[in-house]
Design a protein around this nucleic acid. Structure first.
Lengths: 199, 199
DNA sequence: TCATAAACTGAATACCTATTCACCTTATAA
DNA sequence: TTATAAGGTGAATAGGTATTCAGTTTATGA
C-alpha cells in the first residue's frame, strides 16, 4: 500500500531518478495521467521499463510524489514573495502575480495539480483546503490590522484562489486574447479587487 | 471520426438511450471518465454491452454528448435567470447564485465539464471561451450603460468565472466549513465584488 | 398472421499497459 | 583484486477493457 519511494544515493542514480521524474512531468502535462504509460515515461527518460520500479512502487506513487513536490514548491515560492511585502494590497498583488508567472513558467505544475480531482479526490481536497488555511491565516491578520474589510475570510480565500486559478488558466491555455502582458492583467484584476466591479 | 449518435425513435428505445445516459453521468461523476468502463455503464443501465453501440459510436462520443448537453443546460439556465434581472448588480448576484445552486443540485455537470481538460483540451477551451464571450457581451453593455467601471471585460469575465467555479467547488466538495447557507455565501462574495477587499 | 426491421444480447476479440523477474553491468570498499 | 551491493535491463506476464458480431427477441404495419 505505502511502499515509499526509494530515493537514490549515488550521483548516477540521482540522475536516473530525475530523468524519470522529468519525463513523467512532461508527459503528464502533455497527455494527462491516464494516457501516459510507464513504458513511455521510461522511453523518454532513456532507461528500461524495470528501472522505473527501482525508484517508484507504482505509477500512482510517482504521480503523488510529483503532486506533493509541486504543491510545496508553489506554496514556498508564493509565500516567499508575499512575505517581503508590507501591505495587504501589495501582498495580494504579489501573490496573484507570482501565481500567474509560476503557471506560465511551469504550466505542468498547475495542470497536474488540478488533475488530482480525477485521480484521487482526497488529494485535491487536501491541496485546496490546506492552501486555503494558510490564506485564511494571512487574511485574518489583515482583518485584525483593519487593512481589509470584515468579510468571511474563508470565502474570500476561495474567491481569491478562484481568481488566480482562472486567470492562470487563461494565460496558460491562451484563452481569449492579450495573454502576454502579465502586469497589465494583474493591474486589471487588482482594480477589481481594490474598488469592486461597479461604479 | 464523426459517426453521429443514433437518436432512438421508439418510446422503448428512448428509455434505453436515457438509461445509458443516466448511468454514464452517474459513473463519470463518481469514478471519473477513465475509471468508468462501458461494461459498467451498460450493467448499471440494465442492458447488454452491445446495446451501448446501437446508440453511441464510442465511449468518447458519449462523453462529448454529455458534455455538450450539460454546457447548453448550464448556459440556458443561468441566462434565463439573469435575463429577468434589471441591474448589473442583480444580474451578477443571480448568475453566481444560479451557478452555485446548479453545481449543488447537479455536481456531475460541473465536475464532468471540468474533466474535459484531461480528456480533450480543445473541448475545455471551447467551453470556457464561448462562455466568456457571452459574459463579455453582457459586461460590455454594462460598461456602456456606465453601470460598471471601465475594466477590461475579458479579464473581468475570467475573474468572475473563477469566483463562481471555486465557490461552487467549495460547496460541492464541501471544502472548509459553512457550505450550507448559499445566500450567506453569495452575500459575502457580492460584498467583495461590490466594494472590493480593502478598507 | 407474418414478413421485416428495429432493438437487443453477451461471449469473444483484439489491443493495451502496469508490473515482474531472471539476469546482466557497474561501482565500491576491504 | 575481488566479493558484494547497487544500478540497470527488457521480454514476458497478468489483468483489464473498448469494441465487434453472429445470433435472438420484440415491435410494427400490411
Amino acid at each position: 500500500m505505502h511502499t515509499p519511494i526509494s530515493e537514490p544515493t549515488t550521483r548516477n542514480a540521482k540522475a536516473t531518478f530525475n530523468h524519470i521524474l522529468d519525463a513523467a512531468i512532461e508527459l503528464f502535462y502533455k497527455d494527462g495521467y491516464h494516457r501516459t504509460t510507464v513504458n513511455n515515461i521510461t522511453k523518454h527518460a532513456g532507461v528500461a521499463a524495470g528501472t522505473f520500479y527501482l525508484y517508484f512502487p507504482s505509477k500512482l506513487a510517482l504521480y503523488k510524489h510529483v503532486l506533493i513536490t509541486f504543491s510545496h514548491n508553489i506554496r514556498r515560492e508564493i509565500a516567499a514573495k508575499v512575505a517581503v511585502k508590507e501591505t495587504r494590497y501589495e501582498k495580494e498583488r504579489e501573490g496573484i502575480k507570482a501565481f500567474i508567472l509560476l503557471a506560465k513558467k511551469h504550466p505542468q505544475m498547475y495542470n497536474i495539480i488540478y488533475e488530482s480531482l480525477y485521480i484521487d479526490r482526497a488529494l485535491f481536497k487536501d491541496y485546496y483546503e490546506s492552501f486555503a488555511l494558510r490564506y485564511i491565516r494571512g487574511l485574518n491578520e489583515s482583518v485584525k490590522n483593519k487593512e481589509i474589510r470584515d468579510i468571511d475570510t474563508e470565502i474570500v480565500s476561495y474567491v481569491l484562489m478562484g481568481i488566480s486559478n482562472f486567470i492562470g488558466l487563461k494565460v496558460v491555455l491562451d484563452l481569449g486574447n492579450n495573454n502576454d502582458d502579465i502586469d497589465y492583467i494583474v493591474d486589471q484584476v487588482m482594480e477589481l479587487i481594490k474598488a469592486g466591479l461597479f461604479r
